[in-house]
Design a protein around this nucleic acid. Structure first.
Lengths: 197, 197
DNA sequence: TGTACATCAGTGAACGCGCGTTCACTGATGTAC
DNA sequence: TGTACATCAGTGAACGCGCGTTCACTGATGTAC
């Protein structure tokens, strides 16, 4: 079959969408290519017409794709909403219970540490993009200190989400989320100490 | 061969040691049983004399084993060292670069969220054990608030370590660690706000 | 206008490999007589 | 004291299965003549 000129890149984009979701739901190591391709409505053989290897897919699936919809809390950040909005949105039960459409950093950070330098670079680029969105809202007058604090706030959100997911969906897990919200809002309001030995 | 009466449990303990290390280094899904048994000096068939399944091993390897040596920062906590000691120790380059002997929460939290309820319970029990060690050092007069803050501090350490590992071993990664130390020390000194809507 | 050929995204079977798991067997030691 | 048997942690080959990857082939459409 001969297809329209956008067909190829649309298929590629569809594979990336499916991969991004399955990786976040099941982890990268537990996501098989045949299953991914089937979920994208294709057979396994077509994979190598679009990607050189699984690692190639991982890198591209982790990289930022500006044309794709943002996760809810990134959309809030880009809209300039204050910490009181995007912090509770990130640490919500809805985000906890639906990793597939949520933050890939919370879902994959540990696993990424074991991948290639190129894959880690793509991942970190996206982390820094979010950090750059958070930084202007951090307290204090020193830009570097605000960026550093933003990085810590993001790390707190990521770690809290992982502990909450490990704790399941009950009240104990809700408490983990609430603890994280309190601490993140504290970090977002207390300026960075000017110099610590 | 007939062995001494402690031989069996010594072998089991050895398998658990090897598993705990390999899981933290490679992840659970990427650790094969044959490789684990070989690293323990055994052949694959002996595995099922000690564990009913891989998931059984995972649960036991994640659970607390009081007879085993603590990680450096837990030892500091148990010795009553202040945050200024164990926070920088947790967020050290040495810990970042040697996941195999480090914090299993930082290495495995995300992956654990996809395992059975029993496995997650064993994992969370150990998390709460560390949280209970941190809590007395947190600021404020309300015990529940101190425990909640301790949980958030631990989540911050975990998330920071993962971002640092994703960032590699260079200056950018060192900055991630330094940002986490600053924020964790802040959370350890600023009391929990009495009531937030 | 009609025919032959080129294009190329996708098909589906097959490759070797490692996975978790099973099981008949080994063999050094302890126990019974 | 010497022999026969029971014990049981560990061996190592094999099971079916899914993995990442390869490749000869398909077939609808565009182009050339």
């Amino acid at each position: 079959m001969r297809y329209g000129k956008n067909h190829r890149e649309q298929t590629r984009s569809r594979i990336l969408d499916v991969a991004a979701q399955q990786f976040r739901e099941r982890g990268i190591a537990s996501s098989g290519l045949a299953g991914l391709m089937a979920a994208a409505g294709l057979t396994n053989g077509a994979f190598y017409a679009h990607f050189a290897s699984k690692e190639d897919l991982v890198r591209d699936a982790l990289a930022d794709r500006p044309d794709r919809p943002r996760t809810s809390f990134v959309a809030a950040l880009e809209a300039g909403e204050p910490p009181g909005v995007w912090i509770p949105r990130y640490l919500s039960a809805g985000h906890r219970d639906d990793p597939g459409t949520g933050c890939q950093v919370a879902a994959l950070a540990a696993e990424i540490g074991r991948h290639s330098a190129e894959t880690r670079a793509a991942f970190c680029e996206r982390v820094e993009h979010v950090v750059a969105l958070i930084a202007p809202q951090m307290p204090g007058d020193v830009p570097d200190a605000r960026t550093g604090r933003a990085r810590a706030v993001y790390a707190l959100l990521v770690g809290t989400m992982q502990l909450a997911r490990a704790a399941g969906t009950g009240p104990a897990s809700d408490t983990v989320l609430a603890n994280g919200i309190e601490a993140a809002l504290t970090l977002a309001s207390v300026p960075v100490a000017p110099a610590r030995p």
